[in-house]
């Protein structure tokens, strides 16, 4: 077989999705299924971080969006009784809205400055959650979150797994088409050279905010999925670990490969979620 790199990546991706579809049947171990589910969620989360990094902004505070999405979705679902499958997109919209606000304070900042400010936002959001918002968030004790599927349904873990798989593939496809579109080109132009990007008619502020909003939205989806999957939420979700994990996963998958082609990038970031995820699940 004589395959070039693009084809390898294409078949690799299809193979990965195939493995993800049949994986639950290889073992009846529910713990493994749980790990697989968390893996999918962290693939979304890492890819969201990756999208922001693609526009040249390395965030160290993505746990803020992860947590805001989770809290917003939980509260909306708990108060209104709407299915978590709907509210997770609403919760993510809240995360995106706050993402734009955070992005506004960051547009002039780069590198470490940006990293520090985003990190600081995660801490500030955590503080507000456990102090001012305690009446609705339950403070440090956290609150119960509606499950994606009611545990009475037989085989509910499997249904959850497949629905999350569909959402994950949807998010990854979304990111892929964003990166391939003019927006993606604008992101990489800003990352490579902001001055030249501006000369070419790309408005850096607009696209940076867009990157923040998109990334926050996807991170919010990941956070809401995780919390609805676990069924309980505490402010620990804003912790340092959740900000650092996507960074390590994406680096493992290959951040530097972003110039080498989007297919490669996308699948690499997909795989990037794999090894660390197990680690994340064990610590839960």
């Amino acid at each position: 077989m004589n395959l070039n790199r693009t084809e390898w990546v294409r078949y690799g991706t299809i193979g990965m999705i195939g493995i993800a579809v049949v994986a639950p049947f290889l073992s009846s171990n529910l713990y493994l299924l749980n790990i697989l589910t968390l893996m999918l969620i962290f693939i979304i989360f890492s890819s969201a971080w990756n999208l922001l990094a693609y526009s040249g902004q390395g965030s160290l505070g993505h746990a803020a969006f992860f947590g805001i999405g989770a809290y917003a979705s939980t509260l909306i679902a708990a108060k209104s009784g709407i299915s978590p499958y709907v509210t997770l997109f609403l919760g993510a919209a809240v995360a995106a809205f706050i993402g734009i606000f955070i992005g506004l304070t960051c547009v002039r900042l780069k590198e470490w400055f940006l990293a520090m400010v985003t990190f600081g936002f995660a801490i500030i959001v955590q503080t507000i959650t456990v102090s001012l918002l305690t009446p609705i968030t339950g403070g440090w004790d956290g609150i119960a979150s509606p499950r994606l599927m009611s545990p009475e349904i037989p085989g509910y873990q499997l249904i959850e797994y497949y629905s999350i798989l569909v959402i994950t593939i949807g998010c990854i496809l979304f990111i892929y088409y964003i990166m391939k579109s003019r927006i993606g080109l604008a992101f990489s132009a800003i990352r490579e050279n902001e001055l030249e990007a501006r000369a070419a008619g790309v408005d850096p502020v607009k696209y940076r905010l867009l990157a923040f909003a998109l990334s926050a939205y996807l991170a919010g989806i990941a956070g809401a999925l995780e919390i609805h999957h676990i069924g309980y939420i505490t402010p620990e979700i804003f912790g340092v670990d959740l900000s650092f994990w996507p960074v390590t996963y994406v680096i493992f998958g290959g951040l530097s490969s972003c110039q080498k082609g989007l297919w490669l990038f996308r699948t690499r970031s997909r795989r990037g979620g794999l090894p660390g995820k197990t680690n994340g699940a064990e610590q839960k």
């Binding site: 002039r108 900042l109 400010v117 990190f119 600081g120 801490i123 500030i124």
Partner: peptide
Amino acid sequence: YFGGIWKDAISFIILIIVLVIRP
């Protein structure tokens, strides 16, 4: 004045305010 939980947040609030005014 605000309770022990604000200890960490206040440093980042100062940082963000300073950086917004003077990057």
